[in-house]
Nucleic acid binder design. Structure first.
Lengths: 269, 269
DNA sequence: TTAATAGTGTCTCTAAGACAGTATGGC
DNA sequence: GCCATACTGTCTTAGAGACACTATTAA
């Protein structure tokens, strides 16, 4: 890989080894729902810079790594969440590239370009501390006091390291949009789920209550979104009413028609 | 920037200078419409690898560059198209991050991570050859024989260098989707345009004919999409009919309701 | 005069949302 | 008993698409 034809011209015009290098990292915005609330996986940094602050899990990409960026993200996610990957693909959950962040100065040590990935994970056991022995936790989004979310009053807010607050914001906005026109909400659920459970996912991600009856009918009317199992369940903290029916994810990846969230302030501009 | 606190621990755990480096590039998918057809800006490579092949314009990001990745893309685009930037923002047209491509082996020389940007440009004069003296041209998308597009028969197809065919495909799909729910189609137009001209943009990007009457009414019914100037024009190669009215882009960035393209095969799955 | 085009009117059908109503369970 | 909840029915309204129609211009 280091001596193919054209190397001489290439290295004459640019050789990063001769200048200063750019580091490439992969960072993960891993979202899940616990107790009806949207959570994100964060680690507490043990080392400066930003020692003691919360940050997105991530790690450096090494030039000689076998895999591509997606696989680097899969590996990182698996390490922190126990979410298994088979043949480089997630068995449950969802992982997609979110965006790349490369502002100079975003890492005080050197120029770092970070490729962020967005993950949707079903409810999982507590994360284990990663190899760097830092604490890893699912943290409620509402406790982070991001702009647009109404959570803690400012001041009690946990500030994230680096530009991770912005990356997380972008991830949230992406997630909210994706629930509208894809079937990815089911990735937050167990393999079998009820319509009210699915509605709880939408309510947690969108941060607003939905009309139970209309939601129910709408989900069933979208072809391929869910398929019934014929079973019912009485699990969950139910406060009355009949046993809800169980469904599995259908084969549709895109929803048509889409489920549009009620409040889109962007409309009015 | 090279000796902040924490450097010692950081460099002990990872120093890209001590290993082999990753190069970061910015590549641009610059789309425009000429003669009613969608074109992409390509350069012809003068040097190996892929000498003589067409490729997306792009360039290396240097660690000590002042700007962020967006500004690197703006600079690259300005160099090749003459599209001016003021205060780091484009005066006309549109530029957004598309995605990042980092498969090992995508560049035979070394590990290169490429941040791709997607640009929508109004009709511009012929591009000048870049500083590397390679030819730069707007090439019709249809002549590239991409999967999904029905253009040239295979065999006469121009194959792009590196993984640029995939990047271009992703850019096209993004562009097609963006026209549905944003007002970005106006970025392909002159500052004043007619509804039929706007329709030609949609038809060129989506690759299908639209119903003129319904399109007209729909565009006017979306609040903030376009605003009338009160003028009419007789420019363009008209083949009959009254002089169309002139419009400017309105202040809406998102279209509500959206313009959905007729054929979305993804629906049926 | 013919043909193509800009722009509008109208009809049908789908779907979203508001609301009510029924059945089933927890307490 | 009460009440929350799972669903289902119905009404109104917005909007998409098909089609028809008029007015205006090029050739």
């Amino acid at each position: 890989m280091a001596s193919s034809p054209g190397d001489r011209e290439f290295l004459a015009s640019y050789d990063p080894r001769a200048y200063d290098a750019i580091a490439v990292t992969v960072d993960i915005v891993a979202l899940t729902i616990r107790d009806g609330e949207l959570h994100v996986l964060l680690i507490r940094r043990g080392q400066p810079p930003y020692a003691g602050r919360w940050a997105l899990p991530g790690g450096f990409v090494r030039a000689r790594d076998d895999g591509d960026l997606y696989q680097a993200a899969v590996r990182e996610l698996a390490e922190e969440t126990g979410l298994n990957a088979k043949d480089g693909d997630l068995e449950r959950g969802h992982l997609e590239q979110l965006g790349t962040y490369g502002d100079p100065g975003r890492d005080p040590r050197m120029r770092v370009v970070s490729v962020a990935y967005l993950a949707f994970a079903p409810e999982l056991p507590e994360p284990e501390a990663g190899s760097d022995a830092a604490a890893a936790e699912y943290v409620p989004i509402a406790s982070l006091g991001l702009t647009g979310a109404s959570g803690q009053p400012p001041g009690t807010t946990r500030r994230l390291a680096f530009d991770h607050a912005r990356i997380l914001s972008d991830g949230l906005e992406r997630a909210r949009g994706k629930l509208e026109y894809t079937s990815l909400a089911t990735k937050f659920c167990a393999p079998e789920f009820t319509i009210p459970e699915l509605r709880a996912v939408y309510e947690a991600v969108w941060g607003e209550e939905l009309h139970a009856g209309n939601f129910h009918r709408k989900v069933l009317s979208v072809p391929g979104f869910v398929e019934g199992t014929g079973e019912t369940t009485d699990r969950g903290e139910r406060r009355g009413g009949p046993k809800p029916r169980l469904y599995r994810a259908g084969d549709a990846r895109l929803l048509h028609p889409a489920l549009i969230r009620p409040s889109r302030e962007e409309d009015i501009r």
